[in-house]
Design a protein around this nucleic acid. Structure first.
Lengths: 340, 340
DNA sequence: AGAGCCTTCCAAAGCGCTTTGGCTTTTCTG
DNA sequence: CAGAAAAGCCAAAGCGCTTTGGAAGGCTCT
């Protein structure tokens, strides 16, 4: 059942039927009712391919998925997706993932924009001066960055959490508990979130006249194994830290294992705070010693980004609107006063 | 730059240019070269929306993403996606995720098929007599099931791993090591993979004249917490098992924690084998006691499914071709002879 | 009553591609 | 060398929708 048939069946022109269905004012309410009714009865649904060609609108949002043999997609992605899906489902938005060589995403961005394959895109895990942000900004497609970039001479819309504030608060708590040697096991410090977290820790230390030792901060891909290794290295050194801030729950698993392997205890010998993006399958309260966390639901962020993208597509939101969410500091058993 | 302009510029008809570009035989090789050359020079790329409308082909594969407040997307999904992306990238295939109410995916399947929004779909985590499989089968869109369904009167194409064989081998090993009381901590037993794994364990036990006690098998959502709870329940019972087979690495984290909380040891008091889908961020060899696993890369499966879907789209593969991958049994420190 | 204005509808022109059917021109074949 | 076949190209008709530019008819106003 296509428009032509429906129009013929109603003894109306395609124009009128189309307008009736799309809510244009220049059609009699009575007629509109008739049309809508017939459309529903016959299960008419406009062919999206045709609509696309005519309007350029696709009803899809895009994401360029960096891939490659050496590239691992972040497990956070799935949670983000859940949130995005929650919103998108209710609005009949689809998400198209365009896999790209991690080292050449530009080509793919250009393609999906030139081809008008999607109405909007989002960018995740941005780095400072991230080229993707600059690119989509000039390409002129609606977009939102999940996270933040830095160092541009233009503003852009983003949704980020207060990573600096979160780690500032975490560090401040540890300092107040008497810790003097803090360490930070961070994610890849080419990404902005990691830069911000380190900044937060440094600021808290500085406020008490301390600094973060060069070898007390490390930046690694966030795997359990890397958490373990970093912790071993930290704790086996002569000036071992008494408190660790850690950028992910998965790395925290490794931290806990390392501490145990060394015959030390949490929080007796070392306090631990990790960032929690809220996974349904791994919860900080279930760690052998319940883990203190800075918590922010990445799923909610996904839903919010979908919502804002939809708003941008329909013109309800514009400009470089930014949004920074506060992060909860949830204190559990893994922190205590510094050992004597 | 569209076809019309390009054709005009070459003083050829759109027909000829189109055919030249799409490799049709009825065009002079010399002409073809000229056309291809000009197309490249001017960066001409056919508008996919137009092509879609004309051909019905989209260059996209689809996945209906079950969503909902109570629905958590499986973290395995991301690894599967990595593999899919690896292949899709090289073939300029995009993946469109259509979020659907988890309780009503049928509507969405019907929509994407009726609208010809994708060229093929895949289905994951199938249950026995899965309605989605029956549906896409009748809808007539190319598809592949990742995993297996059961109980149909028709065949369908799938890619699965030998879950039954894997758990059969795992159980057999434990039995040979003298274990008499095995337990299985399984995933959601409405899904086929879980059914098969249980079948594998039972078969191994039966071969030695044993059975799987009713309270020695449990079926839960695969989270760390559920692994913990199940293990506590098992080990605190009077006829506690001396060996556990576990359906996921994440649950195994909980198993390990529970064993430790009870003051028991792996493998001294209880042996453990878990299934490993191969996550980059959590590796069995890094467990405090290196974990024995049944191993199969879900990422490779993703790549293979993309490959087969592409083959189906282009007509190279057809019929109910099935593929079952063997699973490695990797023995590490977490298994030992049964305690006396 | 005529001008001017809404209201309501329509024919037709796109959107940019593929594909059908046909028309020349060249190449073979007996 | 005539006739048939093949090669190479083209005009035009879709694909199914939106949107432009009217047009017809009814209404108000002076």
């Amino acid at each position: 059942m296509n428009l032509k048939q429906l129009a013929h069946m109603l003894a109306l022109s395609q124009t009128t039927v189309s307008r009736a269905l799309n809510g244009y004012p220049e059609v009699n309410e009575e007629t509109r009712r008739r049309v809508m009714d017939a459309a529903k009865r016959h299960g008419y649904r406009p062919n999206p391919s045709a609509r696309r060609l005519a309007t350029g609108k696709t009803g899809m949002i895009g994401y360029v998925l960096p891939t490659g043999a050496a590239v691992d997609i972040d497990p956070h992605f799935v949670e983000f997706l859940s949130g995005l899906g929650d919103y998108a489902r209710a609005h009949e938005l689809d998400l198209v993932l365009s896999p790209a060589d991690a080292d050449d995403q530009e080509t793919t961005y250009r393609r999906i924009v030139a081809n008008r394959q999607v109405d909007a895109v989002y960018i995740s895990s941005p780095k400072p001066e991230d080229r993707r942000v600059a690119l989509v900004n000039t390409l002129g497609i609606p977009f939102i960055v999940h996270g933040r970039s830095e160092g541009f001479d233009f503003d852009y819309p983003y949704l980020d959490i207060d990573n600096e504030g979160a780690f500032h608060e975490a560090a401040r708590l540890l300092i107040q508990l008497g810790h003097r040697r803090l360490a930070l096991i961070n994610g890849d410090d080419r990404e902005t979130f990691a830069v911000h977290r380190e900044r937060g820790v440094r600021r808290a230390l500085a406020a008490s006249g301390m600094t973060l030792g060069e070898h007390h901060v490390c930046s690694v891909v966030m795997t359990e194994e890397n958490g373990y290794r970093a912790t071993r290295r930290l704790l086996e050194a002569s000036d071992a830290p008494t408190a660790i801030a850690c950028s992910s729950l998965i790395m925290a698993l490794g931290v806990v294992r390392a501490v145990r392997d060394l015959g030390l205890a949490i929080p007796g010998d070392v306090s631990l705070i990790a960032h929690d993006d809220v996974f349904p399958w791994l919860r900080p309260e279930n760690f052998s010693v319940p883990l203190s966390t800075t918590r922010s639901s990445i799923r909610l962020a996904g839903a919010r980004i979908a919502e804002r993208l939809a708003a941008r597509i329909s013109g309800l939101e514009e400009g470089a609107r930014s949004e920074v969410w506060p992060v909860d500091l949830v204190v559990r058993g893994s922190v205590a006063g510094a050992p004597a």
